[in-house]
Design a protein around this nucleic acid. Structure first.
Ligand SMILES: [Mn+2]
Ligand SMILES: [Mn+2]
Ligand SMILES: [Zn+2]
Ligand SMILES: [Zn+2]
Lengths: 128, 128
DNA sequence: GCGATTTTGACAACCATTTTCATTTCGCGG
DNA sequence: CCGCGAAATGAAAATGGTTGTCAAAATCGC
C-alpha cells in the first residue's frame, strides 16, 4: 500500500527541484519499476494532501511537486531556467498577509507566495 | 482591430470578480456578438500582456481574468466564498521578494502573491 | 484460507487552451 | 476609390496534462 507511494516519495526526496508527475513516472519506469502513470498521480496527490510535499503550478499549467525539507510553513525561490529551488522563510510576508487581510475584514486568511528568478549558476552560463 | 478586443475588455470592466475565457465568450455570444472563442483567448492574452488585466489560475487550472482598477503593480485579496476581490499594494512584499532573491544570487526576480480569506460579508451570512 | 476492501494500471474520456490555415478585414500609399 | 501586404479572425482539429472507468491484483481482517 505504500511501496509505490514510498517509491514516488523517494524520487522527490532525492531530487533537487520540483518534478512533474510525468517526470517522476518516466524516472521510475526507466529504473525498472512496474508502476502506472495513474498511480503516480494518485500517490502525488495523497502526499500533497498529507502535507508531505509541496505543489505548485507552472505558468503552463503543469503541477510540479517537491518533498519539503521542513514541515513548517515556508515559501520558494525557484530558478526559471533550471528549476533549482531554495526554501525561504518569510516572517515579513506572513505579517503583511495577515495585516492586509485584517485591514479589509477578511478572516481565515491564507496566502500563496512564490518568487521566481534566474539563479547565479544559470545567469553565469548564459553569458555568451 | 480593437473592436472585439474592446468588447472583451468591456465585459471584464463591467464584471465584479474574475471571469474565465469561456465565460466571457458565452456572455458575448448570448449578447449577439459575432466573435470566436479563439479570438476571446487571444484578446485576453493581449490584455494580460499589456498589463490591462490580471490573470490568475484557479485551483482546477482554469485561467481567470479581471480588469485592473489601477495600472501599477499590485496583488489581490480574494474571498474564497464569493470571489469578491480587493486590490492591494504591498511595498513590504515587494521589498521582501527582491531581498530574498538577491540574498541567494537570483536575478530578474519576479513574484506571485495572492491572499485568500473569507470576506466580512460572507463570514456574517455564514453565522447560522 | 476466504470474503471484503483497497490499490493498481491500461485505456478512454475530459476539457481548457493552442495550432492550423483559409478567409476577412485593416492600413495606407498611389 | 484601387490594390496589396500585414494583421486579425474563427471554425475545426490537435494538444496534453489530468481524471474517470473498470476489471484484475494485492492486502487486510478474522
Ligand atoms: Mn507564507
Ligand atoms: Mn488587479
Ligand atoms: Zn538555475
Ligand atoms: Zn465573500
Amino acid at each position: 500500500m505504500t511501496s509505490r507511494r514510498e517509491a514516488v516519495h523517494d524520487i522527490l526526496r532525492k531530487s533537487e527541484g520540483f518534478r512533474s508527475a510525468q517526470d517522476v513516472y518516466a524516472q521510475l519506469r526507466s529504473a525498472g519499476a512496474k508502476i502506472g502513470l495513474t498511480t503516480v498521480y494518485r500517490a502525488l496527490q495523497a502526499l500533497a494532501d498529507g502535507g508531505k510535499v509541496d505543489v505548485l503550478r507552472t505558468d503552463d499549467g503543469e503541477s510540479v511537486y517537491r518533498a519539503c525539507a521542513t514541515d513548517t510553513h515556508h515559501h520558494h525561490l525557484v530558478c526559471r531556467k533550471c528549476g533549482h529551488t531554495v526554501e525561504v522563510a518569510g516572517p515579513a510576508v506572513e505579517r503583511w498577509a495577515e495585516a492586509v487581510g485584517a485591514e479589509h475584514g477578511f478572516t481565515e486568511v491564507t496566502h500563496t507566495v512564490e518568487v521566481f528568478g534566474t539563479c547565479s549558476g544559470c545567469s553565469t552560463s548564459a553569458r555568451s
